[in-house]
């Protein structure tokens, strides 16, 4: 599926630019965008290395496990296929918590670590497991309690009440997450029959 989307984006871009006579932009873009991807990696690298280091301390000291136990009632319902003492649960819980607080830079390394732990239990290494999909649904729905970037931009543009959109965002993200989880649950249930 990602294969199709990736190829479509590129095909559409090149063919459409040929038609509209805009091909020089694409020509320059092909070379510069590989570099902007690399710059993004350079930006992420120190943050990922820092957070995986810090979280290793939390994992070794047992803090991560404590935290996941706290959220266990919810997590065990969301991820019925994962053992209660699985390491992945701690990282999943931390990822969700970081996302909720709007700490995007910390959320990504926790999420990647959770995927790594889930992959250890995955019987088919090239295929997504049920738990991975549920986890990604939660992530793509982006459960955020404080959308920090949006609020910052609203302040910059002179909003009279920059934080008024927090409540609408929380409601919308809740509906988005619940619909995603329901569809995920429905598909899994139908597959079992």
């Amino acid at each position: 599926m990602v294969n199709i989307i990736w190829a479509s984006l590129i095909f559409i871009a090149i063919i459409y630019s040929l038609i509209t006579g805009n091909i020089s932009t694409i020509n320059n873009g092909i070379l510069t965008h590989a570099k902007s991807g690399f710059n993004l990696i350079l930006e992420m690298l120190p943050l990922i290395v820092l957070w995986t280091g810090i979280m290793k301390i939390a994992e070794t000291s047992g803090l991560l496990e404590k935290f996941s136990k706290l959220l266990n009632p919810i997590l065990s319902k969301l991820f019925p296929s994962i053992r209660k003492d699985h390491k992945a649960l701690g990282y999943i819980a931390s990822n969700i918590a970081a996302n909720m607080l709007g700490l995007g830079s910390a959320a990504t390394p926790f999420g990647l670590k959770a995927m790594e732990e889930l992959q250890k239990d995955n019987p088919k290494k090239d295929t997504a497991s049920d738990a991975m999909i549920t986890f990604l649904v939660l992530n793509t729905a982006g459960v955020t309690l404080i959308p920090t970037t949006v609020i910052a931009l609203r302040i910059m543009h002179g909003s009279l009440n920059p934080t008024e959109i927090i409540i609408t965002s929380i409601l919308a993200t809740t509906i988005s997450s619940i619909s995603g989880l329901l569809l995920d649950h429905h598909i899994r249930k139908r597959a079992k029959k």
Partner: peptide, 27 residues
């Protein structure tokens, strides 16, 4: 999806994209 699945080498993503996009639409 690309980032998380790419990091562990999962290429068969099953219904993940469908559910993700559905959640976006509903949002």
């Amino acid at each position: 999806l690309a980032l998380y699945f790419g990091s562990i080498g999962v290429t068969k993503t099953r219904y993940a994209l469908k559910v993700g996009l559905f959640a976006d639409l509903m949002g």
